[in-house]
Simulated assay, not measured.
Amino acid sequence: MHWLDRSEYPFPSNYFDINGHKLHYLDEGQGETVLFVHGTPSWSFDFRNVIKRLSPGFRCVAIDHIGFGLSDKPEHYDYSTQNHSRTLEGFVDEKKLENITLVVHDFGGPIGLNFAIQHPEKIKNLVILNSWLWSSKEDPDFIRLSRMLKSPLLPFLYRYLNFSPRFILPQSFGDRKISKRLLKQYARPFAHKTERNGALAFARSLLNDQEWFEELWCRREAISTKPALFIWGMKDPVIKSRYLDKFVSGFPDSKVFRMETSGHFPQEEEPERVAEAIFDFLTGR
């Protein structure tokens, strides 16, 4: 991993065997478990600075989905969102994680919250950053986005231009833009076109899984009374504040931390504030 910036990401790597492939994860610190589940086109790297601040008092575990980060990226694999959730379930079972504070972002929302709905006894708290848990079929922004998702050019853009990390990710930031040095850490895990099918599958999931997302919302009662913290980048150009409003309506025991200048990746844009908000939430400050 000659491209990996160890000054930014100084953690030792761990691997979990699943479906004949290796899933990379971090396991830092001691204490109650905080489990981080990333979205696309990211990996555990985007939580690195939050983990550095929380690991002195908590056990911070962060996975890289198969197809992302330092995990294996087979060309042919079941990259469905549902299978990522099953993999998370297998990981939690194997590692015997209990009393979990589950931190989810973007596609980590449906992946992680589906697991939580099925195993509420394992979940102590929820921390949700710029995500969703319902169908967006009627949302005007999604209707516009779906035209691009249906384009026959989409596989070409993802496989040959590494479109998601190189173009979509930097456009989703708020006031604090990502540097070229850091952007490289998001693009380089997808070094070859055969390693980019995981990100492409998430784009297709937006088109094909809206009914499943809605089913999760209808089943949220299993976790809706868990203490929840919503950390929201208010300048997210895609997952806007109305998504936050809907989440809050379905989780009555929740707190909200609005980040007015952050976009879709508050944990990358303002990690100090995200870490402080999570720490205060977990310690009752």
Rank of each mutant, 00 (worst) to 15 (best):
P189E: 07
I168K: 00
P189L: 03
F202M: 14
Q210Y: 04
P170V: 12
E211M: 02
T194P: 10
K184P: 00
R166S: 11
Q185S: 03
R196K: 07
K180E: 14
F167A: 04
Q171G: 15
P189V: 05
E195D: 11
Q171V: 07
N162G: 08
P170K: 06
P170M: 06
I178G: 02
L206K: 05
R176V: 15
P170N: 09
S172A: 15
N208L: 08
L182Y: 00
Y160F: 10
K184Q: 11
F163R: 13
R176P: 03
I168C: 04
Q171S: 15
G198Q: 08
D175R: 00
R204K: 14
L182Q: 07
F190I: 02
Q185C: 04
P165I: 13
H192D: 15
R204Q: 14
L207V: 07
L206A: 07
Q185G: 04
F190H: 06
L206T: 03
I178P: 05
K177Y: 04
I168W: 03
L182M: 13
Y160E: 15
F202K: 02
F202Y: 06
Q185T: 01
R181S: 14
N208A: 08
E211Q: 10
N197I: 01
S179P: 00
Q171F: 00
R196N: 09
A203M: 09
N162Q: 07
R204T: 06
R166I: 13
E195C: 03
L161W: 13
L200N: 07
F190N: 02
K177C: 07
R176E: 13
Q210G: 06
L182H: 01
N162P: 00
T194H: 05
K177L: 14
L169H: 05
L200H: 07
G174V: 13
F163L: 13
N197Y: 12
Y186S: 07
Q210N: 10
T194Q: 13
G174I: 11
R176I: 15
L169E: 03
Q210P: 10
S164W: 03
F190S: 02
F190A: 07
S164F: 10
L206S: 09
F173S: 09
Q185R: 01
F167I: 11
K184N: 09
L182C: 01
I178Q: 02
D209R: 08
D175V: 12
P165E: 11
A191D: 11
P170Y: 09
N162V: 05
L206H: 05
N197V: 01
N162I: 08
P165C: 10
E195L: 02
R176D: 13
P165H: 06
R188M: 15
D175N: 12
Y186G: 07
F202R: 05
L182N: 10
E195H: 06
A201Q: 02
K180A: 14
F173N: 09
R204W: 04
D209F: 00
N208F: 03
F163K: 14
R176Q: 11
D209W: 00
F202G: 08
R166T: 14
S179M: 04
K177I: 13
G198W: 05
A203W: 03
Q171R: 13
